[in-house]
Computed example of a mutant assay.
Amino acid sequence: MRIIGIGDNVVDIYQDRNEMFPGGNALNVAVLAKQSGAESAAYIGIVGTDIEGDHILDSLSKNLVDASHVRRAVGESGKAYVDLNEEGDRIFVKSNKGGVQAKLKLNLTVDDYEYIKSYDVVHTSLYSHLDEELPLLKQYLPVSYDFSNHFSVELLERVCPHIQFAFISGSDLTEVEIEELFLKIHGLGAPFIIITRGSKGVVMSHNNKRYEQGIVEANVIDTLGAGDSFIAGFLTNHFNGFTIEESLIAAAQIAARTCEVNGAFGHGKQLTF
């Protein structure tokens, strides 16, 4: 399968390690899909003209993800600062709100669309600010969208008619709220809904047929990026022809392996001052 991620990128700066790691949902899914068995992967987004932007592009190259359509704009790349809490979990401390990419809209050109349509699926996210492009994107290929845990009814109603795969972070959702979400999103037209719930595993609905998948044991050192790796693993296996059950199991295994490295997929770089 061939996958393209479009939208957000960032460097996650680990203050306790004085180290930065490439990240961002759309970028992570492209890289992790390539690591999970995708034939090819690509990423389109905006990075700054700084050492963080250099590191993001270098990481894409080293992971064999095509970045030929990435834009560079004068300014800071997106930065998120993370630290360890008392339980050893990563917590977000602050960010520069997306840096230069938050100040500029990613406008896809005719040339971009010719390039995009050579892929099997496109993945984007709430943080990618690509919602206006979704009606056109869906005419070319299936769209996967990560709502994180910051979705609203208005966002669901704007996005779901144009996507095939809806991913939601829902560790705090009750069983009733999950069922209400399934009914709402299916009613808006999206056939695949996957809700990740941290240590409680995953619940999924495909055209109102329910599935569950537990977590896979891991030697956890960093949970950052686990959700993105689950998305990448599921999409890669699904488009490679595996059943839903097989794709869910593979995705859980890939997410577990992500928890065993720092950053979403490694490639840390020490910061110098």
Rank of each mutant, 00 (worst) to 15 (best):
S128I: 02
S128A: 15
S128F: 00
H129V: 12
H129G: 04
H129R: 04
H129M: 13
L130R: 00
L130W: 00
L130D: 05
D131T: 10
D131W: 01
D131L: 05
D131V: 15
E132C: 04
E133P: 12
E133G: 07
L134A: 04
L134P: 00
L134E: 11
P135D: 11
P135W: 05
L136P: 00
L137E: 03
L137F: 01
K138V: 02
Y140C: 13
L141W: 10
L141C: 07
L141R: 12
V143G: 07
V143L: 07
S144L: 02
S144Q: 14
Y145E: 08
Y145Q: 14
F147N: 10
S148D: 05
S148E: 06
N149L: 01
N149C: 02
N149Y: 00
H150Y: 13
F151C: 01
F151S: 05
S152Y: 10
S152A: 09
S152E: 09
V153Y: 10
V153A: 14
V153I: 10
V153C: 08
E154H: 06
E154P: 07
E154A: 14
L155V: 13
L155G: 00
L156V: 13
L156I: 08
E157W: 05
E157Y: 09
E157N: 11
R158V: 04
R158I: 06
V159Q: 06
V159A: 08
V159S: 12
C160N: 09
C160H: 11
H162V: 01
H162W: 12
H162P: 00
I163F: 02
Q164M: 01
Q164S: 15
F165S: 15
F165H: 13
F165R: 13
F165Q: 05
A166E: 12
F167D: 09
F167W: 01
I168K: 03
S169T: 15
S169I: 04
G170E: 03
G170L: 05
S171K: 03
S171E: 12
S171C: 08
S171P: 09
D172Q: 10
D172P: 02
L173I: 11
T174Q: 07
T174I: 07
E175N: 10
V176A: 01
V176M: 15
V176H: 09
E177N: 07
I178A: 03
I178N: 08
I178D: 09
E179A: 11
E179W: 06
E179D: 03
E180C: 03
E180V: 10
E180G: 02
L181V: 04
F182Y: 15
F182V: 00
F182H: 13
F182M: 06
F182I: 03
L183P: 06
L183S: 14
L183T: 12
L183R: 15
K184P: 04
I185H: 03
I185D: 13
I185N: 07
H186L: 01
H186N: 09
G187M: 00
G187Y: 15
L188I: 07
G189D: 10
G189H: 11
G189A: 06
G189F: 10
G189S: 04
G189E: 15
A190G: 11
A190Q: 12
A190Y: 06
P191N: 11
F192E: 07
I193D: 08
I193K: 06
I193P: 12
I193L: 14
I194G: 08
